[in-house]
Computed example of a mutant assay.
Amino acid sequence: MTDSSAPPPAPAGPLSGLLVADFSRILAGPYATMLLADLGAEVVKVESPAGDDTRTWMPPVRDEVSTYYLGVNRNKRSVALDLKDAGDLAAARELARRADIMVENFKPGGLRRFGLDYESVSGSNPGIVYASISGFGSGGGASLPGYDLIVQAMSGLMSLTGEPDGPPYRAGISVFDVMTGLHAIIGVLAALHHRAETGRGQHVEVNLLSSALSGMVNHTSAFVAGGVVPMRMGNAHPSLFPYEPLPTADGDLIITAGNDGQFRALCEVLGVPELAGDPRFARTKDRTANREELRPLLVERLKQRPKMEWFHELVAAGVACGPINTVDEGVGFAEELGLDPVVTPGEGDRAVPSVRNPISLSLTPPSYRLPPPALGEHGAEIRAWLAEPTTD
């Protein structure tokens, strides 16, 4: 496909030449396909005539467009297809036939009636890497709705979040949607590697609940390996102390001591080196067991000075710590570090600020070619391309 209004081509990314048929919406799938697009893949976003649900998730907005939608849909071209319309369904099937990768997050089995399930698509396109994202897998949980909040509740994450004597809380982001999107990419790249060796595609399946149980790492391991059911501890860590916010003269500072050396360095900076030699606090397991005795001793010193003074001294001594920033402060801090967190694909009034792809590659870096598309923005172009005969 070509677009005379598109910006000059960026250096070819590592996934350049791959076509992604993106039949996903909301977050997990679109986040995954955006990252693939950043790495050079050509992504065609297939939407219903009503559009991706997140187009209507507002506020906040930028130029009357949901910033939620804008955050996960750059570098894509949009075509609106009604799968109940014969002509549109034929176009969707042709796109799937030509694609290297297809990503979908319909309920398991939901695309079968349209001939767009893995078995149907792979019949005409045996090299397809077909990624299905669901909430609870394609077995007993196939009919369950897969929103991130539901999975946060049912996986056990909410039982870990909040104060010990308070109600459970959701995480501040859709953590399992993002995690599952990343797992989908890992599966897709593994399947592409296998295809390069064998010529055969395969079905990649990921679901939010499995990603959640894997992503809760030490907490799920506590149960499956140790028989311990973790419960919420506020900002405290079950296996480390200090590893939480501690009050200073003007606000909290996150302070961590992941090993005995870091704790000794912390005690030196605070002017209480004797604590590191106290048998109650000398080792990680001792500090964790005696946190209620140790915490007030550390707070007594910390409250004597402002948090940023402590921050600079502790970091210089090799102690990991940091203030609790707001989102704007977090972006600003990344800018101070030279991480250039904001990129702006598009030109003129179509330029849309976006958060940089977190992957850095020395030879084939991510590129930011297109702003998030309007609904069906590239429909005529894509339909014309799909109508052209192919030689394969």
Rank of each mutant, 00 (worst) to 15 (best):
K76G: 13
K76P: 04
S78F: 14
S78D: 14
V79N: 14
A80F: 09
A80K: 09
L83R: 13
L83C: 12
K84D: 15
K84L: 12
G87K: 13
G87A: 15
L89R: 14
A90Q: 14
A92R: 14
R93V: 08
E94S: 01
E94H: 03
L95Q: 10
L95K: 13
A96D: 10
R97E: 15
A99V: 11
D100N: 05
I101V: 15
I101Y: 05
M102K: 05
M102I: 14
E104F: 01
N105I: 04
N105W: 08
N105V: 10
N105M: 12
F106D: 02
P108D: 02
P108V: 07
G110W: 10
G110C: 07
G110I: 08
L111M: 15
L111P: 06
R112L: 03
F114D: 08
L116M: 11
L116Q: 12
L116F: 04
E119I: 01
S120E: 07
S120D: 15
S120I: 05
S122I: 07
G123F: 00
S124H: 09
S124L: 10
N125C: 10
P126Q: 05
G127I: 08
G127D: 10
G127F: 05
I128E: 09
I128M: 14
V129F: 11
Y130T: 05
A131T: 10
A131P: 06
S132L: 04
S132Y: 04
S134C: 12
S134K: 12
G135R: 07
G135N: 05
F136I: 10
F136T: 09
F136G: 06
G137D: 12
G137M: 14
S138M: 01
G139S: 11
G140V: 07
G141A: 12
S143H: 13
L144N: 06
L144S: 05
P145K: 05
G146C: 08
Y147P: 02
Y147M: 14
Y147R: 07
Y147T: 06
Y147V: 15
D148M: 13
L149D: 14
V151A: 02
V151T: 04
Q152W: 09
M154D: 03
M154P: 00
M154S: 13
S155F: 09
G156K: 10
G156H: 03
L157W: 03
L157D: 03
M158Y: 08
M158H: 00
M158R: 04
S159N: 06
S159M: 06
L160K: 02
T161G: 01
T161F: 00
G162N: 01
E163W: 12
P164K: 07
P164F: 04
P164T: 04
D165R: 09
G166W: 01
G166I: 09
P167W: 00
A171E: 01
G172P: 00
I173H: 00
I173N: 05
S174G: 08
S174P: 09
V175P: 01
V175G: 02
F176I: 13
D177F: 01
D177L: 01
D177H: 02
D177N: 05
D177V: 01
M179C: 08
M179D: 00
M179P: 00
L182F: 07
H183R: 09
H183I: 00
H183S: 13
H183P: 00
A184D: 02
I185N: 04
I185W: 04
I186S: 13
G187P: 03
G187F: 06
V188G: 03
L189H: 09
L189I: 15
L189E: 02
L189C: 05
A190M: 15
A190G: 13
A190P: 06
